[in-house]
């Protein structure tokens, strides 16, 4: 069995408002594509934030690519941070930079030795593949929700991460864009090992493509396994998230 890329060890973390807790034990194998579905306030975003090291658990440990987030320095260039691409529910594109510069920023910061033209080619290739090339000089305020989200995904993938964490990647995207985005991520996974953990609010092509499905409700894992297994396990009220 290959080493797990993401491990939640007896994790307990308070959800927004503090009245509910996310409690989770999880191992995601390297190269797997896992979709996490469930209703609002199920703890999906918190799970992504914990996996991204943005939030520390109240109890337990979160290990990603063999590193415990509590032991990782923000300033360490060898940190797992650079091998993990994250897109949160809010895309978080820097509002004072164009889309092109937003996607270029991680390369400029972390790959200073890379020639300028090579960096720009890499960014343009990424933008073209996600249908954003014509928007390269627009600022985030001039983009719609779907464009901003795809821009954030382009930025998250620019350093060629080993793990991709997505919180509601299909929000604001039309059906064609969803299929295009899924095809792009599939392509990246075919090229090199990429572990994907995506939190989704509704069934989508990402759920179809997932190797494994996790159903969360009120901070607890209701079902975990392949889609067929999960379909038989979930209570009827949650079945629409799987079908």
């Amino acid at each position: 069995m290959s080493e797990a890329a993401i491990i939640f060890e007896k994790v307990r973390a308070p959800m927004l408002g503090g009245d509910l807790y996310l409690e989770m034990e999880l191992r995601i194998a390297a190269g797997a594509c896992v979709a996490c579905v469930g209703p609002s306030r199920a703890g999906k975003s918190l799970m992504v934030e914990l996996a991204a090291g943005l939030v520390a658990p109240q109890a337990g440990r979160v290990r990603v690519l063999g590193q415990d987030w509590s032991e990782v320095s923000d300033d360490d260039p060898r940190s797992a941070r650079l091998r993990v691409g994250v897109v949160l529910q809010q895309p978080g594109l820097l509002s004072n930079m164009t889309l092109f510069n937003n996607v270029l920023l991680p390369l400029r910061y972390h790959r200073g030795a890379m020639p300028d033209h090579h960096r720009e080619q890499t960014v343009m290739g990424q933008l073209e593949r996600l249908g954003l090339a014509s928007l390269r000089d627009r600022f985030p305020a001039e983009l719609n929700q779907g464009e901003a989200r795809r821009g954030a995904i382009a930025r998250a993938l620019i350093l060629e991460p080993d793990v991709l964490l997505l919180d509601d990647p299909v929000a604001g995207l039309d059906a064609d864009m969803v299929l295009g985005l899924k095809a792009y991520i599939d392509e990246r996974r075919a090229q090199r090992s990429l572990t994907v953990l995506a939190a989704l609010r509704a069934s989508s092509p990402f759920v179809d493509a997932a190797d494994r499905l996790i159903v969360l409700c009120e901070g607890h894992v209701e079902a975990d396994g392949t889609r067929d297994v999960v379909r038989d396990m979930v209570p009827p009220a949650l079945r629409r998230y799987v079908d």
């Binding site: 943005l54 949160l88 509002s95």
Partner: peptide, 18 residues
């Protein structure tokens, strides 16, 4: 505004120290 729109969090996630 950067904190609210999660730009600060995005920088951290890109490995860029605030």
């Amino acid at each position: 505004n950067m904190s609210v729109t999660r730009e600060v969090a995005a920088l951290r996630l890109m490995g860029i120290p605030i």
